[in-house]
């Protein structure tokens, strides 16, 4: 049962009303439960930020580490004991700003980790500063006149850096997300699942998605199925307000930290 994976004595959690992180945790726990993972052989690792509080609510060994460094800590856990299941929760700022170097190198090494990135376009815990995924023109406390920098496409970055499995979904696509986590876990090597999710408090409030429902509608309507786009687009560029969802890559490049088949 999924609920068995949660530390009831840690409740209530710190997430704001309407936050997308709980939905994503739910999908991940559903996935590991479906796979029959043993709690005692599972380690959740995270960095700093709203996303990174998730492992603390899960009833396994966990490492809530320093900002941006979750993948480096997870590398140590997995390489020292490949028989452990190691799953990383991270966020857009944690993973791609302060932790960007660890991200591309973990992809390159193709370490057998599953990484779920809660991309809410913002630094939520510190009150809504712009991140490397804040879209151009969007407002945050550090982009009061609209973000001017090009955002990262985290899924494409992971593909380019060498990860064996990469997918992107949103907090609306719970069934697909759960399946993607299962597929990612089952793919030896580095698996990266980006989840675009709502932050009504710090991002939505300043960008006309104050209501969680409006935010999720925006995510759903902005998302374009990658398969469909690849078939029909004839090479044209995706409109900048849209983003692709689906499986970006599933391959079997040499990986590290894969448990011995014994």
């Amino acid at each position: 049962m999924r609920d068995d994976w949660l530390r009831a004595d840690r409740l209530p959690h710190i997430y704001c009303a309407g936050c997308g992180n709980g939905t994503i945790m739910n999908c991940v726990l559903e996935a590991v439960d479906q796979l029959g993972w043993n709690m005692d052989e599972t380690v959740f690792v995270s960095g700093i930020g709203c996303s990174s509080r998730a492992p603390g609510y899960i009833r396994t060994d966990s490492l809530h580490t320093t900002h941006g460094r979750a993948l480096a800590f997870a590398t140590g856990v997995k390489m020292a004991n490949p028989s452990l299941h190691v799953l990383v929760f991270t966020g857009d700022g944690d993973l791609s700003a302060i932790g960007g170097n660890h991200f591309i190198h973990a992809c390159r090494r193709n370490i057998d980790l599953t990484v779920v990135c809660m991309n809410n376009y913002i630094y939520g815990m510190t009150g809504g500063q712009g991140s490397p995924t804040t879209p151009i023109g969007k407002t945050s406390t550090t982009t009061p006149y609209g973000a001017a920098e090009m955002p990262f496409d985290l899924a494409e970055l992971a593909v380019a850096a060498g990860a064996n499995y990469v997918a992107r979904w949103t907090s609306y696509h719970v069934t697909e997300l759960t399946k993607a986590v299962v597929a990612g876990i089952q793919t030896p090597g580095f698996s990266f699942i980006e989840v675009r999710c709502q932050c009504p408090t710090s991002y939505g409030r300043r960008n006309k998605y104050r209501q969680p429902g409006d935010f999720i509608t925006y995510l759903r309507e902005s998302a374009v199925l990658k398969d469909r786009w690849d078939r029909s687009s004839a090479g044209e560029e995706l409109p900048s307000e849209k983003f692709l969802i689906g499986e970006f890559v599933r391959r079997s490049r040499p990986a590290m930290g894969v448990p011995d088949e014994a």
Binding site: T65, R69, F73, G76, A80, H102
Partner: peptide, 16 residues
């Protein structure tokens, strides 16, 4: 990839 990661990795390893 750097010394920050090196220190992080040995801490992760130590917990195993």
């Amino acid at each position: 990839e750097d010394e920050i990661a090196s220190m992080a990795a040995i801490i992760g390893a130590a917990w195993t």
